[in-house]
């Protein structure tokens, strides 16, 4: 994104890319197909299931090359172009191969003011790659993200479209990168909201230990 501000040119996608996923593995299992059908039945038209379908495919194949997007579109029964438009709209759908962990470091207003760029540059220096790039060992991809809706605990980052790491500082980043290298993805941490102050004795900090009683899992985990 930073580069885009200096040189605002939108690249053209490859219009005839080579197939990445071989044909013999380019398919859904019968369970996955049933799952997609369940999602379709939830919406008035099949289009509604496209985001779920793409998400499922991304979790299965790791990213969404055109052939996978086409597979999803065919499975749901919607035009390929529609699915492709949706996939390119959302930055959370990876159109190319990313590292094992994608670090989305927020540099939107609140995080920027609280040192978001310092955190970004620290990670960049530490991993030796720039924003948008993947480390040579294929472990990490660094990305700048726009607001992820956690301004109360700025600066923050998100790990691979999943858990948030709040109130970043350099020590926390060091520990996080070490943990991720060992394969330990941090657990979900709850953030208290102003209306919970009474429950928490007026404590609005997000890293207090007394929040155990008040952990709400993400909505995505409550739906199946």
């Amino acid at each position: 994104m930073g580069d885009f501000i200096k040189h605002p040119f939108v690249d053209m996608p490859d219009r005839n890319p080579e197939q990445v996923i071989p044909n013999d593995s380019l398919m859904f299992t019968s369970e996955e197909k049933t799952q997609i059908q369940t999602w379709i039945s939830r919406y008035p038209t099949a289009d509604g299931a496209v985001m779920r379908g793409l998400w499922l495919a991304q979790e299965k194949f790791g990213f969404l090359p055109p052939e996978v997007i086409k597979l999803v579109a065919e499975e749901i029964g919607i035009p390929y172009a529609n699915a492709y438009g949706v996939a390119t709209f959302y930055t959370q759908y990876f159109k190319e191969k990313k590292g094992k962990h994608v670090l989305d470091i927020c540099t939107c207003f609140s995080c920027q003011l609280c040192g978001g760029y310092d955190m970004l540059h620290y990670v960049e220096e530490k991993l030796g790659v720039h924003s948008g790039e993947t480390t040579e060992d294929g472990m990490f991809t660094i990305q700048e993200a726009e607001c992820l809706g956690a301004c109360g605990s700025a600066p923050m980052l998100q790990i691979t479209n999943g858990v948030f790491v709040h109130n970043l500082n350099k020590d926390k980043i060091d520990a996080l990168l070490d943990a991720l290298r060992e394969g330990n993805v941090p657990a979900f941490t709850s953030v208290t909201l102003p209306q919970d102050e009474d429950d928490l004795g007026g404590n609005r900090r997000t890293d207090v230990t007394s929040v155990e009683s008040y952990i709400v899992p993400p909505v995505s985990e409550t739906l199946s």
Binding site: P8, V10, P13, D14, R15, N16, P17, P66, I69, K70, Y80, A81, Y84, G85, T88, F89, Y90, T91
Partner: peptide, 15 residues
């Protein structure tokens, strides 16, 4: 395709 200031009409790859 794409979003925000980057979007424009396009055919999907291979089409």
């Amino acid at each position: 395709i794409e979003r925000g200031v980057r979007n424009y009409p396009m055919t999907p790859p291979g089409i």
